[in-house]
Computed example of a mutant assay.
Amino acid sequence: MKCILVFACLLIALCLAAPAPDAEIVNQVSDVNADSYSYKFETSDGTKQEQHGSLKNLGPEDDALQVAGSYSFVDQDGQTHTINYVADENGFQPQGEDIPQL
């Protein structure tokens, strides 16, 4: 069951991060295990994403998926924007210069 959850999360992440139709994947690596996964890719337009996740034991009957990663893209002005993030039992926690600080 855990393997299916990890694999489903990986597929969703890859679909959401799919490159624009005119960009080609120039590098792609993935590794899926029963209790963890990792992947990274880079496209010809400068977009990059990498992520790794694993199950974290929260108690005798509770597991949570903890994920860490980053993504970056190049805007129309040629500037690269990068977001680093962690997602775990405390929610999604992004960090980057483009995210306003409260």
Results as ranks from 00 to 15, higher is better:
N33W: 02
P21W: 10
A18H: 12
A23E: 14
Q95G: 00
D62V: 15
Q95S: 03
Q95P: 00
D63K: 00
E97G: 08
T82S: 08
Y37C: 03
Q51P: 00
C15E: 13
G91F: 08
V74L: 03
L58S: 10
D98H: 15
V67S: 06
E42L: 11
E97C: 05
A20I: 00
V26P: 00
K48G: 00
D75C: 14
D63H: 00
Y39N: 11
S30C: 11
Y85T: 04
V26I: 15
Y39R: 14
G59H: 02
Q95A: 00
K48A: 03
N33C: 12
K40L: 04
D22Q: 07
Y37I: 11
D63M: 05
D45Q: 15
N84V: 03
S36G: 09
P94Y: 10
S36P: 08
D88A: 08
D75Y: 12
A64G: 06
F41L: 08
Q28H: 12
E50G: 09
P21V: 09
E42C: 11
E89C: 09
I12Y: 10
K48M: 02
Q28T: 03
A17V: 03
Q66W: 03
G91A: 06
L11T: 10
K48S: 00
L55W: 13
H81M: 07
Q28D: 07
D98E: 15
G46Y: 11
E61P: 00
L65S: 03
S72C: 11
T47S: 13
A87P: 00
L11D: 14
L65N: 04
P19R: 05
D31C: 11
P60H: 01
P21C: 09
Y37F: 15
V29H: 12
D63R: 01
Q93F: 12
A64C: 10
A18C: 14
Q79M: 10
V86N: 06
L55I: 06
V26F: 01
L55K: 01
A20C: 01
V74H: 03
S70L: 09
H52A: 05
Q49Y: 04
N27D: 14
A17P: 05
L14H: 05
I99V: 14
A87E: 13
S38T: 09
D75H: 03
A13W: 01
S70R: 01
A34P: 07
Y39W: 14
E97F: 06
Y85H: 13
G78M: 12
L65G: 05
E50T: 00
T80M: 04
N57T: 13
Q93K: 13
P19F: 04
E89R: 13
Y71A: 07
K40Q: 10
G69D: 06
H81R: 02
N27T: 09
G96L: 11
L58E: 08
N33G: 15
T47Q: 12
V67D: 05
H81D: 03
L58P: 04
D35H: 04
D75E: 05
A68W: 07
